[in-house]
Write a protein that binds this DNA or RNA. Structure first.
Lengths: 203, 203, 203, 203
DNA sequence: CATGAATGAGGCTTCATTCAT
DNA sequence: CATGAATGAAGCCTCATTCAT
């Protein structure tokens, strides 16, 4: 995250406040208008600061978008997963993980939509999104491989490809449910999803 | 599909040729530069006609994009599916269907990327994409329901939700493989995908 | 009215029909959209003929406007005036003249508005309008001079200037009443107008 | 008068200067080229600022035209009128008023021509012109009614209609004299005008 | 004579970015 | 560090006019 630019990280509290106001405003504007239709002046207006101030802290729309995403990274994590111990029932672990994922997605649907939007437009954001996806997939792949080692699931499956497939299934389902609203949200959705996941692995 | 505009449908062969040249040019430019970076003048230059001619047939970039999509709809269909009879082994049917889908996606990867890009930006295109997705999902849902009736797959699954999930899995996998190139393409991919699909249904 | 252009006066009945259709269409479009917003293609569409045909008969919007005005010249004349003989009561003559003028204006309000509009935009049309005005003013001036000679009205008035003033009064009043609709139409209006005219001359 | 737009009213002196320069430039260009032929770039060139600056203060040609008119409203007022006291000879009052009106019109002939031109083309400007006219007419109507109450003029006249007629006469005469130059300017014109006005009222 | 497609100059408008105060 | 006005490249779009069929 080292800046290749001499934009200062604010040193005075006043500067920090302005920077934060800009990020908050950017989130509001991006969620309201979409990334492409958001104008820098909309953001500064929302932040109640001048146009010029934007360039004190950021060099471009892209950069402030990255800052928004960085800022909300914590909200996007799925804290529930790690709390499930390895001794637990594997199905319960998967169910908990899925439930947690869906909940997080539901809470941040607008942001996820934005991320999807911008990833299809800006290569740097695409990279960010793919990195997140990869991390998610790899964690699931390790989990699948682990279950294979323990003889609990179909050993013939390529754990990485299976993880790609199942992770894609879950994330796309969440997108359809919470962003596109094509599928009714609810326990039924998560349950079916978990059941398919377990079935798919022959767990 | 009814135009809310009086742009003519060409009545002379010459007009039809120009219109077609514009659509072809648009596809080239869209695939080369992406939807957002494509300028109308690039399209008319590629089509070797004047700026004004664009407006003889289309009112906006959005509209010619829709025409490109309409034009290539046939290429996107998966003709192989219907050739598999109902008497065949259900696994073979699914395998054939998936293979066909992946092949079609591979051939039209650029267009699929475009569709995804524009769908996240333009509501009208989003509608088109969702309609296609829905058709695909519903076909698969009927197929699943049919297998349930024949007692071949898990009867407890909600066939529609299961179809959403598995269809999402396949289409997203294709996107990751052919557009993002995150997953190596190959028989292995389709086979694993089919295996997961069948497993998921307990077929 | 001699054309400085080789646009043919139609020789075939078919040509005459097309030309007439264009003029009729132009009137409809001009009255509906105003001169400036009227596009040549609107006129040809209204006339149900091709764009090219327009240029078979006219060279410009200006020219077809002139043709519309020429065509409707007869409607604009005030036939009632001449029917009043000189022996009649001068007040009755003036009253009849005014009444006739107002009636004609009321019937052709849309066209008068157009004439006013275009005169402020196109010097050639301005010339036409001024010529009409001048003819009207001069006729009235002669009438006033005549009354002066007969010792019926104030002999100190400059008959030409008085005619300009009173003619302006009437025509502008008609414009306000029938085009701008600022003044309620009715007998009261004409009567007051006539009374003012007579008073002004000390008739 | 409330702007339905967020174009800023300048807050710094510099901004105020630019805005003023644009208005001044617009007046020059409008008077030189006419409203329709005036291009925005002509105005910004004349104001020695960039194209973009125009849009900092105005949204359209129409809007800056309104600003020009607003700016010159003061020049258009007829300050002489109020200086004539009610005790004066009514004829003298009318004479002074007319003289003042003509002088003002003569000074601002170009602008009046513009106003007339644009009023026939743009409904918003038409409204402005009509409001001015109405104010003028109503003031004269009150004056006529006052003279009626004092028994000095024909009591049978409808003071409002009479005012419309006579006000129209004066303003149209001024237009003919100073814009169209159809009538020779001079004392004679004003005197005849005043005489007709007084005669018409039987003053 | 009719047709209707093709043309392209020319004006309009936006908004990211700079910079003087 | 904040301000907000100034900039101008860049793309959009119209429509009168021409011309091949």
């Amino acid at each position: 995250m080292a800046e290749d630019d001499n934009r200062r990280t604010p040193v005075t509290p006043r500067g920090a406040r302005t920077r934060q106001a800009l990020i908050d405003a950017a989130r509001v504007v991006f969620e309201r208008d979409g990334y492409l239709d958001a104008r820098l002046t909309d953001i500064t207006a929302e932040a109640r600061c001048s146009t010029g101030s934007f360039y004190t802290y950021f060099t471009s729309k892209e950069e402030i978008f990255a800052a928004v995403m960085e800022m909300t990274k914590n909200e996007m994590l799925h804290p529930g997963v790690s709390r499930v111990s390895e001794d637990d029932d594997p199905v319960a672990v998967i169910a908990a993980s899925n439930r947690s994922y869906f909940e997080s997605y539901r809470r941040n649907a607008k942001l996820m939509q934005l991320l999807e939007q911008v990833a299809n437009v800006d290569p740097r954001v695409r990279e960010v999104r793919q990195e997140r996806a990869r991390a998610f997939v790899e964690r699931n792949a390790r989990s699948i491989a682990d279950l294979q080692e323990r003889g609990l699931v179909d050993p013939d499956l390529d754990s990485l490809v299976a993880s790609w497939a199942l992770s894609s299934m879950v994330s796309r389902l969440a997108f359809s449910a919470f962003v596109l609203k094509e599928i009714p949200d609810g326990d039924h959705l998560v349950d079916t999803c978990t059941r398919l996941w377990c079935n798919a692995l022959r767990l």
